[in-house]
Every structure is written in structure tokens, then in C-alpha cells.
Amino acid sequence: MRMGYTPLGQGLVRLFEPVMHVSPGKSVSRLLRAAGVTGRNAVIAIPLLWLLLFFLIPFVIVLKISFAEYATAIPPYTDLIQWGDDALMSIKLNFGNYLYLVEDDLYVAAYLNSARIALVSTVMCLLIGYPMAYAIARSSPANRNILLMLVILPFWTSFLLRVYAWMGILKNNGVINNLLMGLGIIDEPIVMMQTDFAVYLGIIYSYLPFMILPLYANLEKLDVNLLEAAADLGCKPFKAFLLITLPLSLPGIIAGSMLVFIPAVGEFVIPSLLGGPDTLMIGRVLWDEFFNNRDWPVASAVAIAMLVFLVIPIMLFQHYQNRQAQT
């Protein structure tokens, strides 16, 4: 660009010479770095800030409201922090909501019932899902992807509509009763809708893929040589399954069970569509408390109690996930 140097240009260059050796881009980035803003930190900050704002803080707010009192106001609760006349701040914690949960049989029964339904469904999912996952893991690689796809496919279709499908199958003039009566096996329809049975069925049906996938991922990695070694050392196939396959698939069993158990405890859609009015589940109680009774503090206390109840399974799940990620 020597040709482009006009006297004016040269003058300008001279004028700016002292600052020219520091390019503006560099000086900005240097300033930012001095303030602790580097590319690396910015990259970390984006997801961290988002999750802090929209995941963690909301929980703090639920916790706060669970200690507030119900009030006929908008929003319908009292403020924890109150300012006295002398501008002194006082924090008023109200444990009444939690006491209410313990004292009222409804909530205790709902928690126990949710736990029972979730537990039984989890065990059933495991019993149905384990042989399925094992069968897929042992099939030829070409078939494996197709079978896996068949297991995942229902998950891509609407959850709500799959639960709805059972309404048509289970109701008094539904598919099963029509079939059985048509064959002359029964005269009166069997009542299946609005029973706990329907809720179990719905949960097992909806969450079965969540059990199969982690189990499959685990069983697929199982070294066939280990089973051959067991056979070689005199172990019959079923015993080899008990001594080798089952203990080694424990991480898969835990992951699958937690993926079924945890959401099943808080399940709302299935008990409200398939369950009867007396199918008490905590997710449904929370919904009613919030939308029908508009008692936000109690609803919040119900949520916090549910979370406390689920902390152990959630931590168990994360522990095994981390351990699997490390190996």
C-alpha cells in the first residue's frame, strides 16, 4: 500500500502512531480479561446463568412461599419479609404448611400411595424390561437397531395420546370387555377404568422404554467372554446369569429404575385420566391444591416435601451416572 501514501495519509499515520501498535481489538480483549471476562469464562457463564435463573432461583422461590401464609390476595400469600415501623426487617417463617401436611391424613396417604404405586410399577417395568433389553442386546447387530427403534418409537408419539389409548381399551364398553363378552367368557363388563390397576398399567406402559434403554446400553457392553469364561469354569447358563450378568448390569438397573420411579411418584396425567376419584397420588394433590384451592403456600410445601422425598433416589441416579461416565 506504499502507493496509497499521500502526504495527508502520512500525516494521519504519524498522528496516530503512538496508539497504532495496540490494535483496538486487542486492547478491548485485554480490558475484558483484566475484569475476569475471558472467552472461556463467557462460555461457562451462558448455561450456568440460564440454569441459575430459570432452574435454581425458581426452587428458592418455591421454598420461600412454602413458608408463607395463605392470604386472599394477588398473589395469594403473605410476604416473609416484613418491615416494622422502625424500619427493622423481620423474617417470619411459617411452618404451618408443613405441619398441615403431617397432620392431615390425606397428604400422608397420598405420599405413601404414590411411593407404593411408583415402586410396584418400577419393579414390574424391570421384570418386563430386563428380558426385552437382554434379548435386544443379544440379537444380531443388524436386528439390534430395528428392535431398539421399535422400543423408542412409541416415545416419539404423544405421551398423552398413549395414555388416552388405554381409556378406549379399558373402559366398560372398551376393547377388552367387548372382546371377552363377545367370546362369551364374561357376561358383565370387568371394571378396569378408574381403578389402581389402570394406573399401574398406564405407568408401566408409559415408562417401559425408560427402563429398557439404560438396561440395553449396559447389557450391550457386557463382554461375552465373561459368560464364556463362567461356562468354561463349570457354571451353567442360568447361574452364570445370576453370578455375572445380573451384578454387572446393576448400574443399568439403577439408572432405569430411577428413570421410572422418580417421575412416576410425581405423575399427574395417568392418575387423572385412568385412576378413580380415590386414586390418591401426590402429583394430583399438588395440582388440585394449586389450581382448585389456589392455596399456593400448601402447594409449595407439597412440592418441597416431594423433593425431599426424592432426594435419595435422585442422588443415587446421579452417583451411578457419574460413575458410568468415568469408566
Binding site: P263, G266, F268, G283, M306
Partner: peptide, 11 residues
């Protein structure tokens, strides 16, 4: 693993 109902309420 969070039950949806808790996420919904808190948000």
C-alpha cells in the same frame, strides 16, 4: 429426573 409438576410450579 425432576417431576414435571415441580418444575412447572416453580417456574
Amino acid at each position: 429426573v425432576m417431576p414435571e409438576i415441580i418444575t412447572g410450579l416453580s417456574l
